[in-house]
Each structure stands twice: as C-alpha cells, then as structure tokens.
Design a binder for these strands. Structure first.
Lengths: 358, 358
DNA sequence: CTGAAAGCGCTTACAG
DNA sequence: CTGAAAGCGCTTACAG
C-alpha cells in the first residue's frame, strides 16, 4: 500500500510484468523476428517453430503492443468516428453501422462526441490524427462557418497525406480540391417527398419546426421543403418557419408557444423525429388531436417514431447503412473524387398514422 | 492514378509528408527534446523558445504520433468501453457517461460492441489490451459461464499488471482475488421495489417477462422480484416466469403467446423497458387496456418509457452516472479492494401511468 | 525457414 | 533552460 502510493505513476505504468515479444522469443527459444512473423502470419514459418511460439504466447498471456506495432509501420487498424452525442439514436445507429463494419474488417473504433461544438469537433479530429486512425468519419450535419470549413479542410489534407482519410457522412463536401470521401443520404429529397405527401393530402399551411440554423442538415431539409412548396405553387410563409434545435424539448416548447399564438396551420414538418414527437405532446396537451386537428411528420425514422401514438409518418434514413458504407468507402481502394468514393443513399417516406387528408 | 494503384499499401501509409517532432525541431531550430518539453508542458522552457516551437507546430500542422508517445512511456490517454450494442439506449447512455467523463479527463474512447457474444467480448478485451488502454470498462450483464469467468479473470490480472484496470460496470465481481474495480447499480433492489409496488396495488399474479437466462442482470432482477414476492408471502409460480431476451420483439411475441394461452395474471414485470413496451403493444392488439385490464412495469427508465402511452412505470437506473463513475473509479488513485474502488449507485421506482390498483 | 539489426517517433534521465 | 542519447516494442528489408 505504502509502496504503491509513493511510486510515481509512470513507474506503475511501466512495471515490467507485461510480456514483450522478446519474452516470448526467449520462452520459445527463437528470435523476435520469428515471433513477429508467426504472429503476423505473413511469412512462412515452420510448423514446429510456430507451435512453440504459440505455446509461449499462451503461457505468457502475451498480446502485442499495438503502439509498437503501429510505430514500426503496420497500420493501426483503427477507425475514428465523431458524432454529436452517443446517446442520440440518430448517431447511435450510424455508430452501430460503423462499429459493425469496422469490426468485420478487424478494426477497433475510436469514438468521441462533439456535443455539437465546432471547436470540439476540430480538436477531436486532431486527437484521432494523433492516434493515426486509418480513417476519421464525421457524422451528421456540419456547421457552415467559413473559418471552420477552412480548418477542417486543412485536416482533411493532413490526413490524406498521412495515408488516412476524412470521411464526410451525411454532410456536404468541403470543396472540390479537398481530399475526402463522402457517404451521404438524400436529405433534401426526403424532405421534398414528405412535404409533397403533406400537400397531396390537402395541406397548404405547413409549419417548419426545428433544427439549428447554420447546420447543413437544416439547410438541406429546409431546401427540400421549400422546393416541394414551390413545385405545387404554394408561396413560402416566413411566419411558418421556426428553426431552433433538434431535441424533443425544443419541439414541445416551441409548439406550445405557437399554439398559444394562434398561428394558422394544418400540418407540421418536424425537422427530425424528436422535434415532431415533442410537438405532438404539446398538441395533445393543448387538447388537440393528431391527425384529426393537426397532421405531423418527422424525419429520420428512429424507433420513437413507431412507439408514439399515433405512429409518426416520417422519412426513413438508412442510418446503419450509412455507417457501414462510410467505413467501406474509407477502407476500400479508391481514388479521391472517383465515383466509388462518393455515394448517396436513398431516403423514402414511411407513411403511418399522423397525417390526415383535409 | 496508375502510380497510386501500383504502390503497395504500406508505402502509401508511410508516405513521408507527415511532420515529425524532428521536423518541428529543425523548423524551430531547437532539439527534439525541447519540442517534446514544450508540447508536454511538463518542464520549464523559455518563453521565446516556446513560441518558436509553437509557430513551427502550427506551420507544419504537426500533431504528435500517439503511438510513439505511448511507446516512449507516456500513458495512452485512452479508455476502452465494451458494450453489447451501440444503438441500444441502455448502453448508449452509459457510453455517453463514459465518453463525457473520459473527454473531461482528456482521454479518447475506444468502443466495441460484443453483440452479446461471450467470445467476442473476450476478444475485444484483448484488442484493448493491445491498445494499452488505461482502463477497460465492461458494461452490463455478464455471462455466468464458468470458463468465461476464468478467462476474464486472467485478463483482469494481465491488465492490472500492466498498470491498467478492468472495470465491471453493472455486473458482478469476478472473485475476491481478481483485481478489478466495480461500479454497480442496485439491480436487485430496484426489482424488489417495483415488485413490491405492484403488490401494494393489489397484484398477486405477476408475470415475469424477458431477459436471457444465464445473464447476471437477469439473475439480479429476478432475485429482487422473488424476494418481494416472498416478503409478502406470495408463492412464486413457475408458470408465470418467462425468461428469454431483452428486446422489444421478444416482449411483443411472447406476450401474444401468453395472452393466447389464457394464463392468469394481472400484471407484468418487464425485465427491461423494451420488453415492457413490446408487451404493451401485444396487450393493446389483443383489445386489452393498460392499466385497466393489465398493469405493466419496466426497468431502466430509458426515454421510450416516457414516450409510450400509457407512460410506463419503471425503475430508474442512473445510466449516464454509471458511465462517469466507471471512468472516475478507473482513473482515480485507489487500492484494489478498497471502498472507493467499488461503489453501487441507487435505483428507484418511477411511478407513471401503467399500473392500476385492483 | 531463421536471425541480426536498423528504424519507426517519441520521452526522459543524464549532463551541462 | 537546453541538448545528446538511450530506450520503448515492434516490423521488415537484408543476409544467410
């Protein structure tokens, strides 16, 4: 006890019980080169030698030091994923896809949450660069801040020069000349489709609710929304646009205010499912019914959209596939700018019970 | 194009544009030792020197190679978290706590999903051992398989000898002599409390639904359930026990079968919220009402329990805190077996609308 | 098929 | 306050 508290941490960390490749070599009576080769299985080794090495490994409980291995030139077998929040279903499902694909390619995942903070995002990319991740995957909407874009572009270049790659998953390109790989989903198309569906059901006064201004996701969805309005000859009404945040609390609160304000509308387009569900709650509290009095649609098709009553009509985003494709694209052979390096997955409307024809 | 496809991958990975500490030193006109010192900020360096180094770093876009740093003896500043599924809210919230605490202690998270597979779990721990993670946190229920326990205990020892630590978060100890840190929640106590609540509302025939046999979480919850029955003098009825899985589909399917079988009961204890919600859906489909005809409780208090109608009465588990505490305990100074190395967070019943007195 | 040795990019005593 | 040098634990040409 006394001893352990007086020892400096570094000494504790470096205590020598850890078996190294040299220990294994000694135990097996071979050179370290031979141990390395039998473990890497990338070079012929005699069967008898191999089994002696493996026995030694087993006996010593040896696992290679990934850092030494990485330093010596091997790949790190690591992919980084940066998301806004681990507990948010949108990111959770994308992360699941990344994790599953990475692990099927025998890689470990590094994960960090930005908490939707631009500077944190930049700092996290640097941390992953330090770790020499084979790829760094940026998930979800991006800030449209110019200084931020420039800084991220610089990191993309550094990563590329390093033999790694920055993957943009569900966010816009950083520019033609910036070496990145993109895996997107048809964000604006989904918004167009669900808005058009609302219009086809007779809705003309549609509230657009939620999503941070200055976020690429908001821009794309709002663009699709407006495009649908325009295609049907409906004039956009600024009074009906309420950007803000992506959470359920925002949807609930803002909807309460709007309901109190007596703004006229027959349907609400929630910028994501969480916002839509929050809005539904406010609507119910106000003594109104969905869809009889007000129709509501969401976006993302996360599980909650199936759980709520009435079940929410929404736009499906292939979240898990997005994650899988991101690592496939990042790790596959490709040329920057080539087709295979940039793909866009489809979205589609999932019709459930929250919209009524009027 | 042609060139890049003929180059071997390793050459691409090791292309030299990456600035090293030597490049920075040259650029700044100082020794590598000085660069290291100013970057680590753990040693006096003249202001003027420092700024020259920092300029060089900026100019070259230098970030230290984490592997070289780790190899040279510094800590890896990395914590590993192993969960069953990233997209499962239970694990998502614990992971959020881990991620937040780790990042506030300036550490990166390694994350991998076991898909509830024992052997995968063991393999993942080895991968994290290779990475020399400062701590490896095992989240959620553990298998009660004896061979598995032995293997995991061996890894705990190896980790400890390495200056790292295995953290058991929401799962039982591996034995007195096995060096681990535990952060638990009062699993059995929560089950006792919510069962007792059901009984206090007049329920006597309570169905226990879901959760894999052979999983520590199931064992703890079922034990609390039985203890509550016993405390009130209610004989346990094997007919009313339906173990199985943790997902919503299981809750739905099995409840359908049970409803069709005409088993008699007035309440159901869902082994977790997902199971409870699935059961509620089957009940509704059968034309029965919750709580008028059947009362239902869940466990975990994940968001869906608030989303469903009626809102689900459940047991709160401090998921995010569990994650935070796990990294605090792992990274704090402690002696194995000491109090601070082993804590248990409280659980409590959250009463909502899914239980009726009879 | 096997070994000796260089080198990966850092950190940290050891000397000034 | 600064530098030269050893060493961390691997992998990989280079020689047999």
């Amino acid at each position: 006890m006394g001893a352990s508290t007086t020892e400096p941490q570094s000494a504790a960390r470096n205590s020598r019980p850890v078996a190294t490749i040299a220990d294994v070599a000694a135990q097996a009576g071979v050179s370290v080169a031979t141990v390395s080769r039998t473990l890497s299985a990338n070079y012929p080794v005699a069967e008898s030698t191999k089994s002696r090495v493996l026995d030694a490994v087993e006996k010593l409980g040896y696992v290679a030091n990934a850092h030494a291995r990485a330093l010596a030139g091997a790949t790190t077998r690591t992919v980084g994923i940066v998301i806004a929040d681990v507990a948010d279903p949108f990111f959770g499902y994308v992360a699941r896809g990344v994790e599953r694909q990475a692990s099927s390619e025998n890689r470990l995942c590094l994960i960090m949450a930005t908490e939707a903070d631009r500077d944190r995002e930049l700092a996290i990319v640097d941390l992953m660069r330090e770790q020499r991740a084979d790829a760094v995957i940026l998930v979800g909407g991006a800030s449209d801040h110019a200084g931020y874009r420039k800084k991220m572009a610089a990191r993309a270049k550094a990563l590329a020069e390093n033999g790694s790659v920055l993957v943009l998953c569900g966010r816009p390109s950083l520019g033609e000349e910036v070496p990145t790989v993109s895996v997107n989903y048809d964000n604006s198309g989904g918004a167009f489709a669900v808005t058009d569906y609302l219009i086809s059901q007779g809705h003309r006064k549609i509230l657009y609710l939620g999503g941070p201004a200055n976020l690429s996701t908001t821009a794309a969805r709002f663009e699709g929304f407006n495009r649908a309005l325009q295609a049907r000859g409906i004039a956009p009404d600024p009074e009906l646009v309420h950007l803000g945040e992506f959470g359920r609390p925002f949807g609930y609160q803002r909807m309460r205010e709007i309901l109190a304000s007596k703004t006229e509308f027959t349907a609400v387009f929630g910028a994501n499912d969480l916002v839509a569900v929050g809005a539904m709650e406010a609507i119910a509290e106000a003594g109104l019914r969905v869809p009889e009095d007000i129709s509501v649609v969401g976006y993302d098709n996360i599980p909650v959209s199936r759980e709520v009553r009435p079940r929410l009509t929404t736009v499906n985003v292939p979240l898990e596939d997005l994650g899988r494709e991101a690592v496939k694209a990042a790790l596959g052979r490709f040329e920057y700018g080539s087709e295979s390096a940039n793909s866009t997955l489809g979205t589609h409307v999932v019709i459930r019970d929250s919209v009524r024809a009027i």
